[in-house]
Computed example of a mutant assay.
Amino acid sequence: MDREQYNIITGIVIGASIEVHRELGPGLLESVYEACLTEELASRGLKVKNQVFLPILYKEKALGKNFKIDLLIEDEVIVELKSVEKLLDVHEIQLVTYLRLANKKLGLLINFNVPVLTKGVRRRINGIL
Rank of each mutant, 00 (worst) to 15 (best):
Y6T: 00
N7D: 05
I8F: 11
T10S: 11
T10M: 13
T10A: 09
G11Y: 02
I12E: 04
A16I: 10
A16R: 05
S17C: 11
S17Y: 01
S17H: 06
V20A: 06
H21P: 00
R22Q: 09
L24M: 11
L24R: 13
P26G: 09
G27P: 10
V32G: 10
E34H: 04
A35K: 11
A35V: 11
A35T: 14
A35N: 13
A35M: 10
A35G: 06
C36D: 14
C36S: 09
L37I: 01
T38I: 06
E39V: 13
E40C: 11
A42N: 15
R44T: 12
L46M: 12
K47R: 15
K49A: 12
Q51R: 04
V52I: 08
V52Q: 07
L57S: 14
L57G: 03
Y58E: 11
E60V: 12
E60S: 15
K61R: 14
K61G: 07
K61V: 11
A62K: 15
G64M: 06
G64H: 03
G64R: 03
N66R: 11
F67L: 15
K68T: 15
K68S: 14
I69Q: 07
D70Y: 11
L71N: 03
L72M: 10
L72D: 00
I73M: 07
I73Q: 03
I73K: 03
E74L: 09
V77I: 06
I78F: 00
I78T: 09
V79K: 04
K82D: 03
V84H: 07
V84G: 09
K86D: 10
K86Y: 10
L88N: 01
L88W: 08
D89Y: 12
D89K: 15
V90Q: 15
H91N: 03
H91P: 04
H91A: 08
Q94V: 14
Y98K: 06
Y98D: 11
R100F: 13
L101I: 08
L101K: 12
L101M: 07
K104C: 10
L106D: 00
L106E: 00
L108Q: 06
L108V: 02
L108M: 02
L109H: 03
L109P: 05
